[in-house]
Design a protein around this nucleic acid. Structure first.
Lengths: 250, 250
DNA sequence: CGCACACTTGAACCCCCTCAACCCAAGTGG
DNA sequence: CCACTTGGGTTGAGGGGGTTCAAGTGTGCG
């Protein structure tokens, strides 16, 4: 169900019947479970949509009428406590499927942290698609399992890792994800702010900033710009991320 | 796939062909996706097994050859860091399906914290079952989604809640689960030790103990025995669990 | 240029952790 | 029957990692 409007962006109704066929994100998403011949069917159910930075498109507790598949940009998924404390449970970028839930209300909120393109599926249309394409359902199950594994890893991070280990894990994961997408450089771009990193890692913005500074002072990273990090010592980073030498310095 | 040996326990090969039909946990588990007529097929693939308290039956990193469905008792699922720090990601009791993973190695370990009965499925046999019973796959997807929602809730707890809120959330969830199983009392039994509660909530054993003591001193709970908690003020508990009055006392 | 916003840095504090002692109930064996 | 052990739990004192509060430093953009 990963469908994306061809660039330059064309609005929903005007989209070509085969917008799924031209989708950059298709091969990364659950939509690759649909054969090329059936893409028309898929495209007919998927409504492309665009959200600007800062726009909320899923709100925790609201009626869960739609599913989404991100095709471009990044969104943050988060839960909040009544007094404003926020926990980001993940960042969704191209290929990410959102809204998987049995309950009839969303369990989390989603907000674009940079311009986001995505495809919207109504609950009912998705159900029909799932019935017609069993492979799609298999693929969704796979996706859900992968997210479950990631969630468990994040629980380990939040429950037991130090601030240094958390940030190292974060950077390490981002490097690995970039590599999985074919980008093998040692520099990562961070579309999210320090505050969002903090809310993702269960820390405060100040601790994130200080930890970045310390890594830099130790010569393990450089910060070419606000939203870029260059990793100088990847082995060291992975070591810290995996929790080796909890109480060693240097 | 929830199958359980009729009590008294009968060992695998000797199990009746319809052990699934007599399984207490069937209606709570994914096995309820299989019609009564097809239970024989299910029972043929499910191998009942028993583990004593303390036995490890899934080891993180090992080859993931089997899936399990708990039919009795409780197991802890956890991940560990090289220096021994442990994070329990969940407790699996009757009806819980284990091993969902795309990767070919387990992402977590599982250990019985009280005597556990479960059914084992080989990867290959489960695949055949899934192909033959699409409803089973649908059910598994549902289960995975529910666990994902629970995992997100746990991330909020680990990342943003105080020790008081964590313990309150833990007790609140346990009360709700008991109610969902038809037990509507105000007393919960805790099969796990304080250390396991701590490893689940991202705290230390001392903090868990102290927080229990404080709740008791405030008259919100009583501790009839080591492994029982009686909730005196459920509304208060749910309020603390949901993070209201972060900085209020009383 | 100057405002707004994101980020950094510093100092004081506090919640929870660490370390250590102690309690208590259930075995175990002489 | 009681001394001893063992494992889980509680309680206390002190310390530290991260938070809180507050000020300062860029930096992009109208």
């Amino acid at each position: 169900m990963n469908t994306c409007a061809p660039r330059p962006i064309v609005v929903a109704q005007a989209a070509s019947a085969s917008h799924c066929a031209n989708c950059d994100a298709r091969h990364r998403s659950v939509c690759n479970a649909i054969s090329t011949d059936d893409l028309e069917r898929l495209a007919a159910s998927a409504i492309p949509k665009v959200f600007a930075k800062g726009q909320l498109f899923i709100e925790e507790g609201e009626k869960a009428g739609d599913f989404f598949n991100v095709t471009r940009g990044t969104a943050k998924l988060y839960k909040m406590l009544p007094d404003g404390r926020q926990q980001i449970t993940g960042f969704a970028s191209a290929g990410h499927f959102l809204g998987l839930a049995v309950s009839d209300t969303y369990a989390f909120s989603a907000e674009a942290i940079e311009p986001v393109e995505l495809c919207r599926f109504s609950r009912s249309k998705l159900r029909v698609l799932l019935d017609d394409f069993p492979a799609l359902e298999k693929r969704l199950l796979q996706t859900a399992c992968n997210e479950l594994v990631a969630a468990q890893e994040q629980m380990l991070l939040l429950g037991r890792k130090t601030a240094r280990e958390r940030l190292a894990s974060f950077l390490s994961t981002r490097i690995a994800e970039a590599a999985a997408c074919g980008e093998h450089g040692s520099t990562i771009s961070l579309p999210m702010t320090r505050a969002e990193i903090a809310d993702y890692l269960g820390l405060t913005i100040e601790t994130v900033s200080r930890t970045f500074t310390r890594f830099k002072a130790e010569g393990k990273i450089t910060l070419p710009s606000r939203d870029e990090v260059q990793i100088c010592d990847l082995d060291w980073l992975n070591g810290v991320a995996s929790g080796q030498d909890h109480h060693a310095f240097a």
